[in-house]
Design a protein around this nucleic acid. Sequence first.
DNA 1: CTGAAAGCGCTTACAG
DNA 2: CTGAAAGCGCTTACAG
Lengths: 342, 342
Amino acid sequence: MKSKATSFDIAHLAGVSQSTVSRALRNSPLVNPETRERIKAIAKELNYKVDKNASNLRSQQSHTIALLLFEDPTSDESQINPFFLSMLGSITRACGDNGYDLLVSFQRLEENWHAEYEDTHKADGIILLGYGDYNDYQEKLHQLEQNQTRYVLWGALQQDQPGISIACDNFTGGYEITRHLIAKGRTKIAFIGSASEGSPEFFDRYKGSCEAQTDANLAVRKSLQIDAITTEQSGYAAALQLLAKQQPFDAIVCASDLIAVGVIKALRDKQINVPKDVAVVGYDNIPLSEFTRPALTTVQQDTKLAGKILVETLIAHIHGKPVTSRSLPATLIVRESCGAIL
Amino acid sequence: MKSKATSFDIAHLAGVSQSTVSRALRNSPLVNPETRERIKAIAKELNYKVDKNASNLRSQQSHTIALLLFEDPTSDESQINPFFLSMLGSITRACGDNGYDLLVSFQRLEENWHAEYEDTHKADGIILLGYGDYNDYQEKLHQLEQNQTRYVLWGALQQDQPGISIACDNFTGGYEITRHLIAKGRTKIAFIGSASEGSPEFFDRYKGSCEAQTDANLAVRKSLQIDAITTEQSGYAAALQLLAKQQPFDAIVCASDLIAVGVIKALRDKQINVPKDVAVVGYDNIPLSEFTRPALTTVQQDTKLAGKILVETLIAHIHGKPVTSRSLPATLIVRESCGAIL
DNA sequence: CTGAAAGCGCTTACAG
DNA sequence: CTGAAAGCGCTTACAG
């Protein structure tokens, strides 16, 4: 039991060749059923496990997917956005369900992450997940493309974007939640969250929000849009900035729940009642959105489905099947912060 | 650029042997600095990356750690305990900091997870993380031990336990939070969470809680202990059970925050005011504990430190250095649910 | 400091 | 259905 058993040991004990052992263990139809069972029994007894390094080296695939989580370098190191954590959970499960292993890595945008995993043969493909300035990683995406790395990106569906993307329908999400606000009588709607090409997901939510206002014959107030990255602190600071403008507003659409949490704190500190004076809504439906006071009205992204689709799309891609980008539905979750229940 | 470059291609271009390339790329002192730089330049230009499967196979180590997250089979599939998610984040970071990759896998207790990863040479060692019946996985721990698998377990520090464990000081955590409750005038203290050998972490918290009561000359009310696993639903059901006993109590120590969230919901549904009528405290300090109403008084486990220690201990173990089990400090976090701020 | 050679443990044509 | 042999791309004694 000192050193681990190899296929040769099994072959010896079974009185067959090593090739036959290899075949039997992979359930090849080329091997006699009886022989196969005998070999399997011996393998089990010796607690034999195929050496993945050897089989991967030989077969040139790893049955492993790498998940690269990249974060905005300006955000706090210690806390990971709960939305990503939730995605991580569902991706892990989906990998397991498909017989793939998952290699997880956090990346800073400055780092040289591109291609690392697949080039290194540690993974057959990559899932990219994260916020951050889209323009910054655009170039790296092209490098992945050039190296013929198989990858799937979570985020916005963009025109002329390289590769495959899976995204929530951010435009519709932003549209629906704003329409809901308008239906509840709000007319002066602010938006907190970066609204530019650099943050395509937030930008889509913003565009959806604007369109809902236009469709309701409300004037979009561009001056009520304040940039923020997806942290509580950033949301808090942005809300203060918004307040400092001294322009009237009765609702704030936040680009994420984390931002909304910070915004609500800032409003409370300034004695502004949510939702009475100002309605606040978020995006993501992270677990704690149910527990804020007031409980957050938000847009749910189905992380379970998203993880499944990301993994299955990537695996299909790895196997050379045709795959396309896909948009996933956004679901409005009505709670208290929008003033629905007063 | 079709097929990937190998060390032979580089050797050819640099006019040296493949061995020299291998040495140069690993910064061996055995190679002439000039030669090394030349080789490195070529490697970079070709976008060459060492094939990990080949190098792992040859060197018999993978520089990869496997994280096995096992969960109570009775708990809900879709939601992962946020405490574990937080640990997952810090473990991922710690692995990155130490130059290791992290393979993540969810396991059900029934599955044959033991040994899989190391035997398979996919990982150099394993971190085990999860709740579940301790007795159930005790046997598997012994199998790991027998296979000489390097692993570190997160959980309780037990007598006669095989292997290395890293744990929060659950006894002190339970003691301190109960002492705080008593200092605030509570005398009839219930406990929700399994308190038996099968759940050593919860049991330690319970024992700490009991000792605090004894030290304060309060009688421990064993009938006020109700089993629960760490989910909101289970906490909710357990609180109802407790109420049904019709015995007076003015505080509930919950074995985890998730349980406490369910307990608070149950009490509210029964028109019982928290913390006025009954104080409720949790354990873990998960992100949402700050957002419950009332905000949860709890015990923080430093997940960042825990992840770092887990990873560093495992790596030291892998390298054959002597390692020992360790207990990490528990910190009382006072918020509203204990009645501290009335 | 460098090179030729062996070998890590498999999978997979190839031949029968 | 089975076996002998090559080879995946490295690392590492061994010899110089």
